[in-house]
Amino acid sequence: MDKSDKIIVGISIGDLNGIGIEVILKTFQDKRMLDFCTPVLFGATKVISYHKKALSLDIPVHGITSINQINHNKINVLNIWKEDVDLELGVSTKVSGEYAAKSLAFAMEHLKEDKINVLLTAPINKENIQSETFNFPGHTEYLEANLEGNSLMILMTDKLRIGLITGHIPISKVAEAITPALIKEKVKIMHESLKKDFGISKPKIAVLSLNPHCGDNGVIGKEDDEIIKPTIDEIKENGTLVFGPYAADGFFGSETYKQFDGVLATYHDQGLAPFKALSFGNGVNFTAGLNKIRTSPDHGTGFDIAGKKLANPSSFTEALFAGIQIYKNRNEYLQLTKNQLLVK
């Protein structure tokens, strides 16, 4: 492979006092990783060096001041600030949140300008990152505001993909948010993503029920009978293979999820609790539905183990491979559909 053809993965370094930089460095300890991509960390070599020293990790990095200076055989660190930053590993501080936001903002600009091919985000702290310029519940909402398309958070492994119909909203607001329009939008995004990002020609999608036991014919709520089921039936008429609603407990307990290419949960914990029980440590968060590709590990900042060399890089490594594969799949899909249009 020509080095200039390698996929460039831009990496926002997350909260400076968390485990993000540790899992990044541990992932690239294996030099073979550089055969798959060219990594560009958005931050500062001083910060990376601080973490390397604290963790006793001897991993060389290549400091640059412009994306044009990247070395395809090295771990590139794009220096986006020069000043010294006070670091307190394991502690949530306003400073660590502020610089996490800077890293993300610079990475986003490079993604929008096609200077990087994939964005891989290390974990942020959703509280200390808040400011006038970052006023979002999390990465997903920030990405949707900055990129084209409508987002769908998908938690994924090789065998399980769970999308969320509603995301970071209070549980008290979930029922009123579940509308036919929203269900149709999320099913459409997942269906298109499964085709173009995962290479599945006829995806089968399951939708989970909002209420326990699908509402037990209205005894425990009417939303499943009056909103979710009729909407699924309507979507089916257009040829999309969508099924449900399924009661979440039995759906996962009986391993019914293995029969589907994608699953849509009605709210955050309904999807993430079983996903992390089944896959924690190897899961990937992928933001589907947007014109650019972003993945991240399925864990948080890990302040309790930061700086102790205990962080497991598996999820970050999986997120890296997922981003690369999705990028390849999407390009292949675009080429195939473009050729079909030319034939017609």
Rank of each mutant, 00 (worst) to 15 (best):
G221V: 00
G97A: 09
K184P: 06
G239N: 14
I235P: 12
P274L: 03
I165F: 01
S131A: 06
G244T: 08
K195T: 03
A145D: 10
A322M: 13
N329S: 05
L78D: 07
G90C: 10
F252K: 02
E234F: 13
Q130L: 12
N128A: 07
T38I: 01
S131V: 05
E318H: 09
G300A: 06
I8Y: 07
L310R: 12
Q130E: 05
I227K: 12
E255K: 15
T295G: 08
T231H: 08
A248Y: 13
G221S: 03
D269S: 07
K229C: 04
K46S: 12
K344H: 11
V9G: 11
I7W: 12
S296L: 05
A273R: 07
S12H: 01
I165Q: 06
G218A: 03
K173C: 13
V284Q: 03
S131W: 05
I324L: 03
L120Y: 04
V40T: 01
K338Q: 11
H213R: 01
A145Y: 03
I11L: 11
G302S: 02
T295I: 08
V91T: 13
A100K: 03
I48N: 00
G215T: 04
V263L: 04
Y246T: 05
D15Y: 09
N146G: 06
T121A: 15
Q69V: 00
A175F: 07
G283W: 04
V77R: 11
N73V: 02
I228N: 13
K184C: 11
K115I: 09
K3Y: 13
H139G: 01
S296Y: 03
N329L: 07
F280P: 08
G262S: 10
I178P: 04
W81I: 08
I171T: 08
L16H: 08
V118K: 06
E226W: 13
G20V: 09
P39G: 04
N125L: 11
K26H: 09
G63V: 00
K3P: 12
K195V: 10
T65H: 15
L341F: 12
G18A: 09
